[in-house]
């Protein structure tokens, strides 16, 4: 009973954003392989390792705060955390609200569908098809802009997109190619599904790569992150983390 009381107290008072850590970092925890939550509730993934490496480099203590994608920018603005490391692309629209560091990786977007679906990635070929995207992402904007005749289905997390793709509720999904390859296609759930069409990296929609989001007034923190990104790239730490997850260069050119 006592144990339960403690558990309940923990549930009620996960309150304080004012944790003892120097920097609280919002992460998503539902976007494998960049950010995922294990069965036991631990956070793992490329974003998580990069976050920890950067904190170590800066000599600061960090606390990871798991936050839904929908609420992640408001969470930063509301001081629930001080930075966002959640595979967030640097776009003009987002820059109206927050500031970004330089990119820490950049990978193209792609379609996936059932391997035998026989779809072509032209606006005509996809017309009338049901495509799932995570709402409020660059992929959401991209699909609306470039594939206007597609029936879009919007999801809160990328994991839910995979669930409905498997259930056959959507014909295809559009998202980051690496996220879909490692987070879905390579897993047993992704059996029978494959990429189709070309790589998409349109600056107008996809921005300038993935950066760390910070509040506009926190320029010092932004510069510290930038210096730390350069430092871990120079020291080989970045490559070490990259090789743990991928067999290619995710930083881009």
């Amino acid at each position: 009973m006592k144990k339960f009381a403690i558990a309940v107290a923990a549930t009620v008072f996960t309150a304080s954003a004012a944790t003892a850590a120097d920097v609280d970092i919002c992460v998503e925890g539902a976007y494998p392989p960049f950010s995922e939550t294990t069965e036991s509730g631990d956070l793992v993934g490329f974003d998580i390792d990069i976050a920890n490496a950067l904190c170590e480099q800066m000599g600061k203590s960090c606390e990871l705060v798991k936050t839904d994608w929908d609420g992640i920018i408001p969470a930063l603005l509301e001081d629930k955390c001080d930075a966002i490391i959640a595979s967030m692309s640097i776009t003009e629209e987002r820059k109206k609200q927050i500031d970004f560091t330089n990119k820490y990786y950049n990978t193209p977007a792609k379609f996936i569908a059932a391997a035998d679906a026989g779809l072509t990635d032209t606006p005509e070929g996809m017309a009338g098809k049901v495509v799932g995207v995570q709402r409020g992402t660059t992929h959401h904007d991209f699909m609306e802009g470039v594939f206007p005749d597609v029936e879009l289905k919007l999801y809160g997390t990328q994991d839910e997109v995979y669930l409905d793709l498997q259930a056959g509720r959507i014909d295809a999904a559009m998202a980051d190619s690496v996220a879909m390859n490692d987070g879905f296609l390579k897993t047993e759930n992704g059996e029978g599904f494959a990429f189709f069409g070309g790589d998409y990296d349109v600056p107008e929609y996809h921005g300038e790569g993935v950066g760390i989001g910070v509040r506009k007034e926190d320029t010092a923190l932004k510069e510290e992150f930038n210096a730390a990104i350069d430092a871990i790239r120079a020291s080989g730490k970045y490559e070490e983390i990259q090789n743990e997850y991928f067999d290619f260069n995710v930083y881009g050119s």
């Binding site: 994608w69 929908d70 920018i73 408001p74 609200q97 927050i98 709402r135 409020g136 959401h140 919007l154």
Partner: peptide, 8 residues
């Protein structure tokens, strides 16, 4: 929710 997500 969509509008919230679009404008963060």
């Amino acid at each position: 929710r969509t509008v919230n997500a679009k404008y963060y």
